[in-house]
Each structure stands twice: as C-alpha cells, then as structure tokens.
Design a protein around this nucleic acid. Structure first.
Lengths: 349, 349
DNA sequence: ATGAAAGCGCTAACAT
DNA sequence: ATGTTAGCGCTTTCAT
C-alpha cells in the first residue's frame, strides 16, 4: 500500500527520473541559461509526467520573498473597491504577485492584529485602503519598516507613502458649482470625520461657502456612519431643518442614490427640480440611474494601479523617502443638479 | 555600519538572548508543555524585546500547511460577493486561516492558470464561486485531489463538493407566484447559460409555465452577458415583442434594479402597475429601493460559511466523498410585483 | 525540562 | 553544461 496522501513530487524526484542532478532541475524550473537543450527537454518531460509544481514555501524561505501583498479594505460590495482592486491586480499581474485579502469585517477595530499577522512574513507589503483606526498600527508599520501605502487617505506626518485625490479642491469645486446654480443652503452628508479625507472635503465645502460670503452652518453637515450608512435618516434631518437645503452633497455615489430615493419616495421631492444631489466617485451606475448623477469623478482604477506600483517599489527599496501622489478628479455634470428653485421652499413631507 | 535591511530576528537570535537552545524557543513559540515557567518567561521577554515573529515559510515548509485558502470570484463590486465572503471569513477566522483573492478580471478566461498557480502550494484549498469556464480546470483539481468546493454551481458528475440553493425550485416558486398574479407573458432575463445554475433556473421557469398549461416562448428569455450585463437592452427587446411580457424575472437584484429604471425612464412604464419585476438574491438594497423589490432570498452569508467549513473538512480529509449541500431560499414578497394589468397591454415606447 | 541533530524543498554559490 | 554543497528558519524526534 502506498500512503494515503500522495506526496507532491519534489525536485529530487524529477532529477531521478530525468537522470540529472537536482540543481539542473532547479535551473530548468527557473529558466536559467547554461542547460543543454536536450537535458532541458528531458527534465521538462519528467516534470510534466510527474506533475511537478515548485514548493513556494521552500522557495520563499530561501529568497525571503513570497510574491504576496496584503490588501486591507472595509468591505467588498461596492464598485469603489472593485475598481481599485482592478487597478491593483493589473500591476500585480505583471510581476506575478498575488493578493491576500483582509477585511475589517473580520476583526472590526482590531486591524492592528492583522497588521502584525502580516508581518508573519506572508505578505511583503500592505495596501491600506481608506484605513480607519490607522493610529493603532501605522506607527508599528513605520517602525518595522514594513512596506505599505495608504490609498485614499494621508496622514499629516506624511511618513507613510500615499496615493489619493485632492479632496479639498474636489469638494470645493463641486460646492462652487452648486453655489453658482444659486443654491444657498447646501446639505453635506459626509463620511466619518475619522478619515482625513472627510475632514479635507469639509474644508473644501467651507472654502466655497466663504468665497461666496456664506456662513457655515454646522446643522447642514451630517456625519454618516461608515460601516452602516443611514442616508435616509440624514436626509430626514436635513429636511426637518427650519431652513432646509436645496442641494445635498454626499460622500459617495451609493449614498447619493439612497438620498435621491429618500427624497423622492419618503419626502415627495423631485430631483433635481426640488432638491439637487451631488455624488462622489462616479461609479458606473452613476450614469445608469435617473436622474443621471452629477458627481465627482474619482480615478479609482488608476489609483489602484499607482498604489500597487508604489508598493512594489517600496518593497524593492524600503528606505526610499515616502512619496505622495495625488490624482486629479473632475466634476461630471449630469442631471441630478439644477438651478435652485426660486420662490418659496419646496414643501417638506 | 549595520546592513541596510535589518534582518528579522530568528529563533536563534532569541535563543541567544534568552540563553537557551533554540528548540526551547520553538517550544515556547508553539506553546508546548514541558517548559519551566521561568525559562518560558525569559524566552517570551526576549521575543518581545526583539520583536520576534515566526517565519511562516519555514513553518509551512516543514508542516506542509500554509493556513491559506484561495477564493476565486468574478468581481468584487456586488453585495452578493460581500455576503458570501463575510460568511467565509467568519469560519476562516476561527481557525486562523487567511484568504488569497483571485478574480477572473485578471486572466479572463484563463482561470486554469491560477488554479495551477494555486497548486504552487500557497493555498491549501480553493473556493470557486459561480465558476465559469470550470471545464478547463475542474478535471485537474479532481485528478490532483486538490481540496475545493463549488459555491453556487454544481456539475452533473457531482465529483466536486458543492454548496448552493435549489435553483429550479426557487425559480419555479417565483414564477408560479407571478402566474398566480395572473401574468401570462413572463419575461426572463437570465444569467449566462454556461452556468448550470442558470439552466436549472430556466427549468424552474418552464416547470411553472407547464403547470399552468402555458406554452414556452423562447423569445421571452434573454441570456444576459455575465461580465457586462445589458438589462436595458434586454428590457427593450422584451418590450418590442408583439406580445410583450407583463412581468419580468431576473437573475439578480442589481439586474432587477436596472430593469426597473429602464422600464420607468426609458419606456415610461410603472412598476408594478404596468410591469412586475422579480429580483433574485435579496441583497440589502432590495428593500431600500422604490418600489421595494420582490425577490428570492438567497442565503449568501450562510452559503459562504458552509462552503468554508466544507473546504476545511476536505483539507483535513481530501478523500472523503464529496458532499452537496443545498440551502433553502424563500420568496420575499414586497412591492415590485402586482396583479397583471387587465384590459389592453400597456403601451410600449 | 532541555539540548542536539536531522531535514522539509529549494536556490545559489562554488566546483568541475 | 552539470554536479556538489551549504544553508534559509523552523519543527520534531531522540537523547539526556
């Protein structure tokens, strides 16, 4: 009887079958020169026959490289992540790296644990997408000099490399657009202010207001829960104001969709006639929805690519000074924003 | 000068600092008994001080286990995957396994390559979610006895373990519901028939029709493109029929959403007054949309959990006979389906 | 309770 | 062009 679990053939088995030393097999496996074509063929044939596949662990143990990077994200079910990941994959594929996926579902609030887990040596580097709770582990990453890059988030110390967008300017532009449409009361449903991107965006909103000589009314900005957004509630609160907004800016397109649904169906207000709605990101659905969403185009795919490339570079040279890349955004004008209604306020339900 | 890339401390460094042999360090690291408490403490302190983290590759090389499983999916940006993955993670977390993510974005149509890549030895097993093109590699997995489980797809040979839902019965029930609402012309926008789940669902649709003594009209079923669905086009084709449907079944909730948008805004038809729409899956948005979607609840999260558990079991015992688990679905009646309009057909635009 | 030693499968000098 | 050899960092007997 042979043993139950058929062992995978090793380099030594191949060597035996091909009648060569196992270093020759290694040469063939790694496509090195200085191997006689005939020998190479014999080895290849033997590999084929036995179904040889190199043991990555042995390889990695020796080279210290796993060809794996870790990706830390909050969740999967949104086009933002899909696009970012497409970009990441694009670059990783070129160098035959794979991705270890970590979501904060798993240890909500305990990202720090993975991060150390990652240093277990499996991943060579880490891509942190909009990382909440970063204060708990970023210092460690920096201290241990573990290659990592922040995607869509930057920290004031700028010690960690990052790739993102000009949040302040982007929202400034979007806000100004609304202001030029004669809106004077602008609601803002923001992502959690734990994210620097969110506080930057708020500044952009305030910049535009200031430029138009308008006061900043904190009642108009509502911080949504990142993990379980409640745009319907936020919309209701905005509409319940004595002087409700005629336009609403949001932190993302999916939030904008829900705001539009809520406006229309819970409050009987039409978009954009009664209230204008501004999205953020420009995911594919933005143009498939009615009214088609006016939003800020976020180069998510490109961001993913750049981030992956930066990470790969840092893996090569962990001591290079951290870079900070900002990719430009663009206001995409479609149908969900219109000039402010004149005359009296729209009736709130 | 020390060398540039500070090497990670090994078991030997710890042994030196703690003044013990390195096998003792290994014992402590693995929490083995037979270590003097004082010694253990000394070792622990040394580990702490040097920031010791075990090298997984060395460990895996020896034990043959990587504590990694591979997850093959088509794309990320949908709640279906999010839910399935949440379930997978839940189970994996218990045993401290991590996930390698593979999407068919990367090598569209070349899944076979990963699959062999996976046998590189990094992943101990594979979760295949609604795998298209499986014929190209499933045989290999089976032949090599690589632990794997099919999620939401089963193959007739039943050689690979699977977890899914009763597709035929689920769609039969949904169709019958529509029939009972007096609809007689039922459109069906189906996933690609390459998926057995899709052909099974079609049978369920036909079953219900047959039960009501209705003919099967192939013009009413449109096979959508899995990677770039065009529900708007499909809707248009359905409506252009001489005798257009008064109800439309879809392969997923997101498709249903787009059908509803198209009906309403491109064709001026209201849902459910003019046309009823049936979703599939019951993702969270299904109840946030107007009209709230009537759909078939798919236990995605639970499916992920079961699949992960099955995979883990197969990893322990790759020779156990393949299991096939079916999780029940449920028709969730909300507002997108109503009795068929009486009198003449709704006007098509 | 602890140490010594073998070896997992492979790469990369170094020989020849 | 090919073979020999020394480890990579760790777990696991086997001694003591």
């Amino acid at each position: 009887m042979t043993i139950a679990r058929r062992a995978r053939p090793t380099i030594i088995d191949i060597a035996q079958v091909a009648g060569v030393s196992y270093s020759t097999v290694s040469r063939v496996a790694n496509n090195y020169p200085h191997v006689d074509p005939a020998t190479r063929q014999r080895v290849l044939t033997a590999m084929q026959r036995l179904g040889y596949v190199a043991n990555q662990h042995a390889r990695s143990l020796l080279t210290g490289r796993s060809r794996l990077i870790g990706l830390l994200v909050h969740g999967l079910g949104n086009m933002y992540i899909e696009e970012v990941f497409r970009g990441v994959e694009e670059e990783l594929a070129r160098v035959e790296y794979d991705t270890l996926l970590y979501t904060t579902h798993r240890h909500r609030g305990r990202e720090a644990e993975y991060v150390s887990a990652i240093t277990r040596g499996f991943a060579e580097g880490l891509l942190l997408v909009a990382p909440l709770g970063r204060e708990r582990y970023l210092g460690k990453l920096q201290a241990a000099n573990i290659p990592h890059v922040l995607v869509d988030e930057a920290i004031p110390t700028r010690k960690s490399p990052s790739v993102g967008i000009p949040n302040r300017r982007s929202v400034y532009r979007a806000t100004r657009y609304l202001l030029e449409l004669n809106h004077r009361r602008l609601g803002f449903i923001s992502d959690t202010m734990q994210l620097n991107t969110a506080t930057e965006r708020l500044k952009g909103y305030q910049d535009a207001l200031a430029e138009f000589g308008l006061p900043y009314d904190p009642a108009l900005v509502i911080e949504d829960d990142y993990h379980r957004p409640q745009p319907e509630t936020a919309t209701g609160r905005l509409l319940a104001l004595a002087n409700p907004p005629t336009a609403i800016l949001t932190g993302s397109d999916p939030i904008a969709f829900r705001v539009m649904e809520s406006l229309l169906h819970e409050h009987g207000l039409s978009v954009p006639e009664d209230v204008s709605v501004m999205g953020f990101d420009d995911i594919p659905q933005a143009s498939l929805v009615y009214p088609r969403l006016t939003t800020v185009r976020h180069p998510m795919y490109e961001m993913g690519r750049v981030a992956a490339r930066m990470l790969l570079e840092r893996i090569e040279d962990p001591h290079a000074p951290p870079q900070h890349v900002e990719l430009e955004t663009e206001l995409v004008i479609r149908d969900s924003c219109a000039p402010a209604p004149t005359g009296e306020r729209p009736p709130a339900t």
